[in-house]
Nucleic acid binder design. Structure first.
Lengths: 347, 347
DNA sequence: TTGTATGCGTTATCAG
DNA sequence: CTGATAACGCATACAA
């Protein structure tokens, strides 16, 4: 009893018709008589016929699937983004195929090649923290393959890009720390290669500058894997808190950096905000329950997924010329809670 | 400059060979001369040839893709499971196609039908909290389509199933509350239709029984959507805390129930564990940072994903007869933290 | 060792 | 109104 699917041929044979007639009847073609249509439709219904999407894909040279490449699914920001992606894709009749890079450049390249070898119609990418060489993506893009970047974008390619206003997120967060009375604000940052890291550090720097606080490079620590691994965060914080002039506050500029930073502070019994101010980027669904509740920069992940997918599907369906690319910037949200409030009571 | 992929035919034409020779050379067939092989391989490499997986799928009647249906991707338990699924699928050369039911029966049916219409080779399912009628899955299963259930399984179908020992998880959690001195333990439960809800409530009941604590049905409140929506949790808790004999502790038997329960308690300024004991199922990556840190039952989500996928691929590749199904039960982890510790200091 | 023909499931083109 | 045929890209049985 092997799984055998019913095809148009089976219907044709059973009904004594040709496959083309059946095909046309199923697509409700005007050139088929009502009786034949009825016959075919009823029989198809009865035997539960479903067209084979693979055969269709081969014929139409499109799979109605889009690929997603992210570093980790099990990261609240990305899973929320994927949620948004899926919501639009589903509405537009597209499947969603997911691949993870685990922050590895090699794995990203493999995934891109595999997905793009004609089993997907377009690609949504947030590059890995190791990625510097973009040949694997440029190659595709130059051949006209639809690609949309989100969150972790790259400058060198002209296509749609959807990002959060990372500059503003970091600026606001830093300014909030400043307004709360902190003077020596250090930054826990992600991989130097990532656009988001650069943008966030720029926001941080500008906020310091606007408030006449000297910028010191020693106050910046990078974590190549974006804080995914606790030890890299531990090292970074050990370094920062061991400086001659110890920082009195920290801005953690990515999801995992924020949680692992909190873990470090708890382990070292450093209290927030009394001993150290803290603010972080986080899309976790629980930060409001922390005590003292952490002020966070939250990103509109779901919306980012939706928007990226809309743009990608426009590219795929050639609703607009490929060259007319967009760069959309979504606003982040600064959620103030008691943790960082010293001088200015908010909320 | 439209995206045009290179095919075997192009290679054949360029090299003055037939498509079959090229095909065989690429697959390193023994019947092709070394020179021809070299020629073909080098040229393919040069023009960056990739076989069209869709054509292969059509020919081989397999897509090397597996489908996943879960309620929500943006739920730490499921995103961790998907991570495990992807890790195995990737190693075995399978793509992963994801669909969400959003706890809607209708959407689950649509997704199953769409995915199963021959674009996937097998299906990993965790049913929605609304699902009672299983026709959509039974239908497939009876026709020999490979299906593996994980976490939220169904009794009526004979196929592989991978679950966590929900009975034990809830039993241990309840017992921990009892040992911590609580007498009136209420349960915040998910949808009554779900296997996990039943199993967890059984564990809860048995623990009470073993400790000679009377079981009272009034102490159980169900949330159809598994706590996804705050109001349903709010209602449930309002009800429980409004009972004549108020419960002195609560076991929240699902991820979202746990977080929304905490949210409720914080809002109502009910302190844990002084006013109310609390323990919950949770796979969030942050519970250790809550204060008072919450004792939780954590499920081996990643392993569950891996195991389910291994079993599914065995089914797909007919490594074993379909009828020889397994039911694997993974151990949950009870993580004790200060929140529930009154009489017995642990950790 | 290589080439020719066929089929996977579907639709489009052309004939009748 | 309906049917035969070709084509999508690939692999393979069969011929040479």
């Amino acid at each position: 009893m092997k799984f055998e699917a019913v095809t148009i041929k089976d219907i044709a044979k059973a009904l004594g018709l040709s496959t083309s007639t059946v095909s046309r009847a199923l697509r409700d073609s005007y050139e088929i008589s009502p009786e034949t249509k009825k016959l075919v439709l009823e029989y198809s219904e009865k035997i539960n016929y479903r067209p084979n999407p693979i055969a269709l894909s081969l014929k139409e040279k499109r799979s109605r699937s889009i690929g997603i490449i992210v570093c980790e699914i099990a990261n609240s920001f990305f899973s929320q983004t994927i949620n948004g992606i899926e919501s639009i894709a589903y509405d537009m009749g597209y499947n969603v195929i997911i691949a993870q890079s685990h922050e590895s450049y090699n794995r990203e390249v493999l995934n891109v090649q595999y997905l793009a070898s004609r089993s997907i119609d377009g690609l949504l990418v947030s590059v890995s923290s190791e990625t510097q060489d973009l040949a694997h993506l440029k190659n595709l893009h130059e051949r006209g393959f639809p690609i949309v970047f989100f969150d972790r974008i790259v400058d060198e390619m002209e296509t749609h890009k959807v990002i959060v206003d990372n500059f503003k997120g970091a600026y606001d967060a830093t300014e909030h720390l400043i307004n709360s009375g902190y003077k020596h604000i250090a930054a826990l940052a992600g991989s130097e290669y990532l656009s988001i890291t650069k943008e966030r550090l720029n926001g941080y720097r500008k906020a310091l500058e606007d408030h006449s606080i000297p910028y010191d490079e020693k106050y910046i620590q990078h974590c190549l894997h974006g804080g995914m691994l606790y030890p890299e965060v531990e090292n970074a914080l050990n370094h920062l808190l061991g400086l001659p002039i110890k920082p009195d506050a920290i801005i953690a500029s990515a999801d995992k950096l924020t949680t692992n930073c909190m873990r470090y502070l708890k382990k070292r019994k450093i209290s927030v905000p009394d001993e150290l101010g803290l603010i972080g980027f986080s899309n976790l669904d629980l930060t409001d329950l922390l005590s003292p509740s952490l002020s966070v920069v939250r990103q509109p992940a779901f919306e980012m997924g939706q928007l990226s997918t809309e743009l990608l599907i426009q590219l795929i369906e050639s609703k607009r010329p490929v060259k007319d690319f967009e760069r959309r910037i979504l606003p982040p949200q600064l959620l103030i809670r008691e943790s960082t409030v010293k001088s200015i009571p908010v909320d």
